[in-house]
């Protein structure tokens, strides 16, 4: 193993790997944020009084959680462009070739899975909030948005935190799969470096260390967040 390969600048791959790590972090954050929004929407549908909404959300989470992420990525990657062009020509009469930036495609791929997993977490957290609290809020005359903002969201956020931490770890590690569609994140960068230096072990090991660092670091972050969120909670 030749560690001078990891030098910064033109001589080595250190800066490229670091840039790959930044892309990994960015795509993970974007997909996670979008995934939590999708998850919140699906959780609302699962708890909705309208049966078709519940069926849709149930179908979505069951299918996405039971199918490999790689297959979902191929669907979005190969199918997304076709769907986009169909919409463009159907609704706007534009027949030229368009495609989404690879970063956006990657984000959507990961958010689809993250949404399914966080839907379960958020739904579980909503059901933990005692019904009496919401009834009390109605009794004192709070409007729906007020009840949501004052009663539901603060408590759901606290209860959902451990589960959402799991979803984050999952999303972070799943970013490696995005390399198959060509986004230059850690894995892709490692593959490029491995190919040109003929030292695959060195660079995949660097990739592993980067992921290890990112997961360990974010684990610390969620630990701190949980401590902060549970400050006011009485313990038995």
């Amino acid at each position: 193993m030749d560690l001078s390969l990891l030098a910064w600048g033109d001589a080595g791959w250190g800066d490229q790997m670091a840039r790959g790590a930044v892309v990994t972090i960015l795509v993970a954050i974007a997909a996670y944020a979008l995934g939590v929004v999708i998850g919140a929407g699906l959780a609302a549908m699962k708890l909705a009084p309208l049966a078709p909404l519940r069926w849709f959300a149930e179908l979505y989470t069951t299918v996405i959680r039971g199918i490999p992420e790689l297959l979902v990525i191929y669907l979005v990657f190969f199918g997304g462009g076709t769907a986009l062009r169909a919409i463009a020509s159907g609704m706007f009469g534009y027949d030229g070739y368009i495609e989404l930036p690879i970063f956006v495609t990657g984000t959507i791929c990961l958010a689809v899975s993250a949404g399914a997993y966080s839907a379960e977490v958020i739904r579980g957290a909503v059901q933990v909030v005692p019904k009496g609290q919401l009834e009390a809020a109605v009794a004192v005359g709070m409007s729906r948005p007020q009840r949501l903002r004052r009663i539901l969201v603060p408590q759901v956020a606290r209860h959902a935190l451990p589960g959402l931490g799991n979803v984050w770890q999952l999303t972070l590690k799943d970013t490696s799969l995005i390399s198959v569609i060509g986004l230059v994140e850690i894995m892709r960068q490692a593959a490029v470096a491995a190919g040109s230096t003929k030292e695959p072990f060195t660079f995949y090991l660097v990739a592993a260390v980067l992921y290890l660092g990112l997961t360990s670091l974010s684990n610390r972050g969620f630990d701190a967040a949980e401590r902060w969120a549970n400050k006011g909670v009485r313990r038995a």
Binding site: M1, K173, S176, M187, A190, P200, F201, Y204, L205, L212
Partner: peptide, 21 residues
């Protein structure tokens, strides 16, 4: 280590990485 890194890295490390040795 095995839970904190993506499975894809583990697969590539074994399949492609072994070529280095």
């Amino acid at each position: 280590v095995f839970r904190a890194t993506p499975l894809l890295v583990q697969i590539f490390l074994i399949y492609y990485g072994s070529g280095q040795f």
